[in-house]
Simulated scan of single mutants.
Amino acid sequence: MNLWDLGDRICILGPSNSGKSTLANAIARKRGLEAVHLDQLFHLPDTDWQQRPREEFIALHDAAIACERWVMDGNYSVCMPQRLRRATGLILLDISTPASLLRYFRRTLFETKRHGALVGGRDSVKWDMIHHIAVTTPRNRRKYRAMFEELDLPKLQLCSLPAIKQRFHEWGLTPD
């Protein structure tokens, strides 16, 4: 699949720490699209991942999807239906739970700068996040796979870190 086949409003879904934000930024640079990181809309800046009020998040989300050209990373099922109705393409990153956990620990322990991070926020290892990746994500993965199959959009599923890396190469994307 060609990157341009996905249109001008691309959703990137997948488990935490699968590389959604890095891919979104790379596509945004290549295609001249606005990169929208849902983590940044869902959480308050300058906090340790404190959530915004639900209504405020949905309003920010709906304003972002009203734009004509974007690549948006994140799941947040509370507003996924309207996002997918606006989307022209979908990428599902479907990496394994161990890979997600490894990337989470690497990110929180060793990386000082990352794509999609909160402005003024800080990453640290949190039990809630480990539980989310290890317990919640496998259930969500099944749900996202089923949804992916049902959607009638140009779509691409990448099931491993090497597959994601290969797509970066094929599309001429750079992670930074």
Rank of each mutant, 00 (worst) to 15 (best):
M1E: 09
L6T: 00
G7N: 10
D8L: 11
R9W: 02
R9D: 11
R9P: 11
R9L: 12
I10P: 00
P15R: 13
G19K: 09
K20L: 07
S21P: 05
S21T: 04
L23T: 05
A26N: 02
A28Y: 11
K30Q: 04
L33V: 05
E34R: 14
A35R: 02
A35C: 08
D39N: 04
D39P: 01
D39Y: 00
D39W: 03
Q40T: 12
Q40N: 13
F42N: 08
H43S: 09
H43R: 01
D46G: 09
T47K: 08
T47R: 04
P53F: 02
F57L: 03
I58Q: 11
A63S: 08
A66M: 03
R69G: 10
V71C: 07
D73G: 01
D73V: 04
G74S: 02
N75W: 07
V78I: 14
C79W: 01
P81F: 07
Q82E: 03
R86I: 03
T88V: 03
G89T: 12
L92M: 04
L92Q: 05
L93E: 12
T97V: 10
P98G: 09
A99E: 14
S100M: 13
R103Q: 07
R103T: 06
Y104I: 00
F105T: 00
R106Y: 00
T108M: 02
L109M: 05
F110L: 15
E111L: 15
T112C: 05
T112G: 12
T112S: 10
K113Q: 15
R114G: 04
R114E: 05
H115V: 04
H115F: 08
A117Y: 02
V119Y: 12
G121F: 06
M129R: 10
I130V: 15
I130Y: 06
I133S: 13
A134W: 09
T136M: 13
T137N: 04
T137W: 12
P138C: 03
N140L: 14
Y144F: 15
Y144P: 03
R145C: 07
E150I: 11
D152Q: 15
P154M: 02
Q157K: 15
L158I: 06
S160M: 04
R167H: 09
G172Y: 13
T174A: 07
P175N: 06
